[in-house]
Amino acid sequence: MATDAALRRLLRLHRTEIAVAVDSAFPLLHALADHDVVPEDKFQETLHLKEKEGCPQAFHALLSWLLTQDSTAILDFWRVLFKDYNLERYGRLQPILDSFPKDVDLSQPRKGRKPPAVPKALVPPPRLPTKRKASEEARAAAPAALTPRGTASPGSQLKAKPPKKPESSAEQQRLPLGNGIQTMSASVQRAVAMSSGDVPGARGAVEGILIQQVFESGGSKKCIQVGGEFYTPSKFEDSGSGKNKARSSSGPKPLVRAKGAQGAAPGGGEARLGQQGSVPAPLALPSDPQLHQKNEDECAVCRDGGELICCDGCPRAFHLACLSPPLREIPSGTWRCSSCLQATVQEVQPRAEEPRPQEPPVETPLPPGLRSAGEEVRGPPGEPLAGMDTTLVYKHLPAPPSAAPLPGLDSSALHPLLCVGPEGQQNLAPGARCGVCGDGTDVLRCTHCAAAFHWRCHFPAGTSRPGTGLRCRSCSGDVTPAPVEGVLAPSPARLAPGPAKDDTASHEPALH
């Protein structure tokens, strides 16, 4: 009773807030009518008042009428009001819900409408889902798969039609296919003929059939049928067999079959498995989609049935006599038709004709302190090069084509190399640097090759510096006499390219 009084008091307290929050009759008014909170006449009256005075006034009048009803109607109103779709449509209802007392429970059932309790003993237990329907569909599909699609060729003596089998029958139906081979029951999904010589313990000319048996419980189990008994694959494991010639990621696949039913060829011909030897223990289905393919039931050349050999690369099948050149017997292992072999060759040939990528240039590290003349020119003028003790990398590039010797140069053309002071002394051009340390401070000019250098860098042994005729380390061993002091540049003949010694390969005349 306390809860009923509290709900009535809360409705009177929030009546105006609810009326202002509800700006549309749908969905709240319609939901109240659906849950029998508002009768039909009051529903029509509220809609009429909404058209006349507006939605807030109409709902305020409806809530005032609701306060005169019993506690069950008020409880049902609060339940409908706080439904998710009403809270989404009328956003101003959320503060009312947040301020609702926590001790007021809106989930209690309506009085007088409590459903009768059902004894637990009368409640049926839930049924577990079964796979009976899938099993029945598999039974119905198996006879259809064994139905012949056409008439065999005159040369083929193997013609068999499976008798119709009602689904209610649980007995196995067997077809006489000759040579002791028996087909599987209607619940078998796949059958492959297997030679009895590969099964340990088999006697006589009995041949087993590799099947997948579907049981009534819905589970499946792969086994071997020899005669009327089934054997699990673990009985046929043979770890010492060295003649297993397995197909790549293979499961067994029928390579020879008669049109209309699988079996042995007439005249004692023995149908073979995809792999010879003992049956392997793992009978998992292969991951290669080509091995799941269903080959055609007629020859791809003459479009006739009979004894066919199936290609492992495509769905086509052929007569042995229709092949070019014809085959006398079934080859062992994987067999592919000429079209598949030709496609494989065409895929391999473009790969062989692809040009080989060019090898990157060989990189040879230079000892610290040495650099090529090109690196000396590329440096920024007026700045010493940083990191001189790091190992430089010199790339061996292809030799350029031989060019004509340089033409003779006048001494005026070499004027930018040297600057003559007032006393006739050779001065260095701006930006000249030593080729060893890279520093341009207090550098000297070689009178023979006009290269800038430090005496301490080229002659670290402490050799005394002569007063005139300074030469760098590369030119100090040259027998050519030094030019007379005061000459602007060496003779043009000295600039012609010539053979250089091994220790002077990195010091070429550089223009500054």
Rank of each mutant, 00 (worst) to 15 (best):
A2P: 15
T3K: 14
A5L: 10
A5N: 05
A6D: 10
L7R: 02
L10P: 03
L10W: 01
L13C: 03
E17G: 01
A19G: 05
A19Q: 00
A19L: 02
V20F: 02
V20K: 00
V20W: 05
V22G: 01
D23S: 02
D23K: 00
D23Y: 01
L28P: 01
H30N: 04
A33I: 00
A33L: 02
V38I: 15
E40F: 00
K42F: 01
T46A: 02
T46R: 04
H48N: 06
H48L: 04
L49M: 05
L49H: 00
E51Q: 05
E53L: 12
P56C: 01
Q57A: 13
H60W: 04
A61D: 02
L62V: 02
L63R: 01
L63Q: 00
S64D: 00
W65R: 00
L66C: 00
T68Y: 04
T68P: 02
T68A: 03
Q69P: 02
D70G: 08
T72F: 09
A73V: 11
I74V: 04
L75M: 06
D76N: 01
W78L: 02
R79C: 03
K83D: 01
K83I: 02
K83V: 01
N86L: 03
N86V: 14
E88M: 02
R89C: 03
R92A: 01
P95A: 12
P95I: 09
I96G: 00
L97P: 04
D103L: 03
V104S: 01
D105T: 05
D105N: 04
G112N: 06
R113Q: 12
K114H: 03
P116T: 04
A117H: 13
V118N: 07
P119Q: 10
K120S: 13
L122I: 05
L122A: 07
P124H: 09
L128I: 13
P129C: 08
T130C: 14
R132P: 00
K133P: 04
A134K: 00
A134D: 03
A134W: 02
S135C: 07
S135Y: 08
E136T: 07
E136R: 01
R139D: 05
R139G: 13
R139A: 01
A140E: 14
A141K: 13
A142R: 06
P143Q: 14
A144Q: 02
A144H: 02
A145H: 14
L146F: 08
T147C: 03
T147D: 07
T147K: 07
P148M: 05
P148T: 13
R149C: 07
G150E: 07
P154F: 15
G155Q: 01
G155T: 06
G155A: 14
G155E: 07
S156G: 09
S156P: 04
L158W: 13
K159I: 14
A160S: 12
A160L: 07
K161L: 12
P162M: 05
P163R: 06
K165G: 04
K165E: 10
E167N: 15
S168E: 05
S168Q: 04
S169E: 03
S169I: 13
A170L: 03
Q172R: 15
Q172S: 06
Q172F: 15
Q173W: 15
L175M: 11
L175Y: 15
L177E: 01
L177R: 06
G180D: 04
T183S: 09
M184V: 04
S185C: 08
S185M: 00
S185A: 08
A186G: 05
S187W: 02
R190N: 12
R190Q: 13
A191Q: 04
S196E: 11
D198G: 11
D198L: 05
V199F: 13
G201F: 10
G201T: 09
A202R: 11
R203P: 10
R203F: 05
A205P: 06
A205D: 07
A205G: 07
E207Q: 06
I209M: 07
L210E: 01
I211E: 00
I211W: 07
Q212I: 00
Q213C: 03
F215I: 06
F215D: 08
S217F: 04
S217K: 04
S220V: 06
K221H: 06
C223T: 12
G227T: 00
E229C: 02
S234I: 09
S234Y: 11
K235L: 08
K235I: 05
F236M: 00
F236W: 14
F236K: 02
E237D: 10
D238R: 03
S241H: 05
S241T: 11
G242V: 10
G242W: 09
N244A: 03
K245H: 14
S248N: 07
S248L: 11
S249H: 04
S250C: 13
P252T: 09
K253Y: 04
P254S: 10
P254M: 07
L255S: 07
V256K: 02
A258L: 07
K259P: 07
G260W: 12
A261P: 11
Q262L: 14
A264H: 15
A265P: 07
A265E: 09
G267R: 08
G267A: 08
G269W: 15
G269D: 06
E270Q: 12
A271Y: 07
R272A: 06
L273T: 07
